[in-house]
Design a protein around this nucleic acid. Structure first.
Length: 576
RNA sequence: GGGGCUGUAGCUCAGCUGGUUAGAGUGCCGGUCUGUCACACCGGAGGUCGCGGGUUCGAGUCCCGUCAGCCCCGCCA
């Protein structure tokens, strides 16, 4: 391999093959950087050591052409410390052009100052973009992570079992990708949103430790951290508690982090969902910074602000953030932070700076020096205040927390912040209707079983998320293994009678024939690679990703099909 | 479904309040050059200004629509 040659190879004859990365033509001498997966290697060509035909050939060679060269490894008079092979070169005797390349539509080589070509072009010419060392390294790391995950799980007795890609549509949750059946016109398969039900049925079947590197599909609108098809490390086990899952997954993450050269201190800290929302306003707080939300209802409820008083009278609370030294932010900078809170639905933030001339800002009118002291404000501090129900203030303060940390450029208190968030609410309410907080198979918390029917909104589930640096890397739960409890939960969700049978009959049949207690988790493989490589987008960790409109630009999917093909599937396009 | 940003040479970008031959860097083509490594130097070609419509004497520039890419809200059990 070209990138592996070192001074100890000097004097040996080598044959190397790869791509023309860059070429330098000095008239009589030519230098050419050869690239393969292992790295770059300089080839030199000159009349004293290169045959005439090869010298002629190198004159005309273009970048990205595939060449084979043969010659002697020699020390370079002037080494290049930026290359691993920088102290040697191959002095080429003969050169063979293996396959000429058209001038590339986007450059593979870029100078450090040069901006990337647009994402659109990078995706359209994916084979060129993937030649870049960064993406080569990322995909190699991804391979090593997946391999490590398989070895880790296998070593602990977990069996990798494949589950169907053509499955039954899921009634709730994300939109399914549907696949028409030719044999049964008018009927459809769905691509799996996850192997959730299959892995539970595998538990019922007695495969007490299962895992799978599973492809999942969800037809929802996309984001930088969301792709329509993505990969999960899917795990399920029988006769276990959440602690078993935590221990296995902490070990797995420590092992994966080790592969990526990242620290994972065990055990991961744990927060209940309630506590996480209280202290950080989010179910996936970024604990690289310690800033916490405070409850100032007691101190500020009696203030002269009608906004604050009204919020409390309506049953809300007054909560906020205290940023030491935050008064350096200008009004304009604080308004940018406030905009982030507004973007998630807050009417606004009240704020207060404690400067050399005393208190200033919109909240200064009703906060006396005395109250400021009670809040713990000192000279140079900034306070951001939100008032209202928790469902408004929590997201607002979470967004404001991230924005103000960024605005102040606060130093991280740790580089790697791992976390379990547990005891998620079993249900969430939407327009008077109960929806599953996670999915409908989560085991209710044992302490909440009795009150489940008359106070379902307060019920907690044995569900947990793994969080790393503010990103949700995985999510799981202990599942319901008792058919009658499962039916109770379906009833609370408004799924009853014949509908249960039609949608979940296969699950209930499995639970009724001796299903063991079981639970599991699914980790987002793509997100793990994204976080470990500090990539800006999931598109940078997937070989062939889709655009935000779910298009594949390289091959051009989705695409129209012939009407005969549709007719065979019993499908008629809707009239425009 | 909603909001925002972007679209000008192969690529990355500039183009002020509308004004006559739309520029730069890089890549590409040709030439000079024997130790370069972002080689250097000289010369050249290369543009439906995303697309459609409108306003105007005149549109890359203003307006409307549309397509594409990106970011966010909703959505993602």
């Amino acid at each position: 391999m070209a990138g592996t040659l070192r001074p100890e190879n000097v004097g040996s004859s080598q044959r190397v093959i790869g791509w023309v990365h860059r070429r330098r033509n000095l008239g009589g001498l030519y230098f050419l950087d050869l690239r393969d997966r292992s790295g770059l290697l300089q080839l030199s060509f000159g009349p004293d050591w290169t045959d005439a035909a090869s010298l002629e050939a190198v004159r005309e060679i273009g970048s990205e052409t595939v060449i084979a060269a043969e010659g002697e490894v020699a020390l370079r008079p002037d080494p290049n410390p930026e290359l691993a092979t920088g102290s040697v070169e191959v002095r080429v005797r003969t050169l063979r052009v293996v396959n000429t390349a058209l001038s590339p539509a986007i450059p593979v080589y870029r100078t450090p100052e040069e901006d990337s070509p647009s994402e659109e072009l990078r995706l359209r010419h994916r084979m060129l973009d993937l030649r870049r060392p960064e993406l080569q390294r990322t995909l190699e790391l991804r391979h090593r992570l997946v391999l490590d995950a398989r070895n880790y799980m296998s070593a602990r007795g977990f069996l990798e079992i494949e589950t169907p890609i053509l499955t039954k549509p899921t009634p709730e949750g994300a939109r399914d990708y549907l696949v028409p059946s030719r044999v049964h016109p008018g009927e459809f398969y769905a691509l799996p949103q996850s192997p959730q039900l299959y892995k539970q049925i595998l538990m019922a079947a007695g495969f007490d430790r299962y895992f799978q590197i599973a492809r999942c599909f969800r037809d929802e609108d996309l984001r930088a951290d969301r792709q329509p098809e993505f990969t999960q490390i899917d795990v399920e086990a029988s006769f276990i508690t959440p602690d078993d899952i935590f221990a296995w997954m902490e070990g797995l993450m420590a092992s994966l982090a080790g592969v990526a050269g990242i620290e994972a201190r065990l055990p991961f800290p744990r927060l209940t969902w309630r506590e996480s929302m209280e202290r950080y306003g989010s179910d996936r707080p970024d604990l690289r910074w310690g800033v916490e939300i405070r409850d100032w209802t007691g101190v500020l409820a009696g203030s002269e602000s009608t906004i604050l008083r009204a919020a409390v009278e309506d049953g809300g609370r007054i909560r906020g953030l205290l940023l030491e030294g935050g008064a350096v932010l200008s009004r304009r900078e604080i308004e940018v932070v406030e905009a982030q809170a507004k973007a998630v639905g807050a009417p606004g933030l009240l704020w207060l700076k404690s400067g050399p001339e005393g208190l200033s800002g919109p909240a200064a009118r009703f906060v006396s020096e005395f109250v400021a002291e009670e809040l713990g404000i000192r000279r140079g501090d900034l306070v951001l205040v939100a008032a209202g129900p928790d469902r408004v203030t929590s997201p607002a303060l979470s967004a404001a927390r991230a924005a103000v940390i960024a605005a102040l450029g606060l130093p991280r208190e740790r580089e790697e912040a791992w976390l379990w968030v547990m005891e998620f609410p079993l249900f969430e309410e939407d327009a008077g209707r109960l929806l599953p907080g996670h999915h409908p198979f989560v085991q209710p918390h044992p302490s909440d079983l009795e009150t489940l029917d008359h106070d379902p909104e307060r019920a907690r589930g044995l569900a947990y998320d793994m969080v790393y640096n503010g990103a949700e890397l995985g999510s799981g739960s202990i599942r319901i293994h008792d058919a009658s409890l499962q039916e109770r939960v379906f009833r609370l969700l408004g799924i009853g009678g014949e509908e249960v049978d039609r949608k979940f009959g296969h699950l209930l049949r499995a639970l009724r024939v001796g299903a063991p207690p079981h639970g599991g988790i699914a980790l987002g493989m793509d997100r793990i690679v994204k976080m470990f490589t500090d990539s800006a987008s999931l598109r940078d960790v997937i070989a062939f990703p889709k655009t935000t409109a779910a298009r594949a630009l390289f091959e051009g999917a989705p695409s129209h099909v012939r009407s005969e093909d549709l007719a065979e599937l019993g499908i008629r396009p809707a009239e425009e």
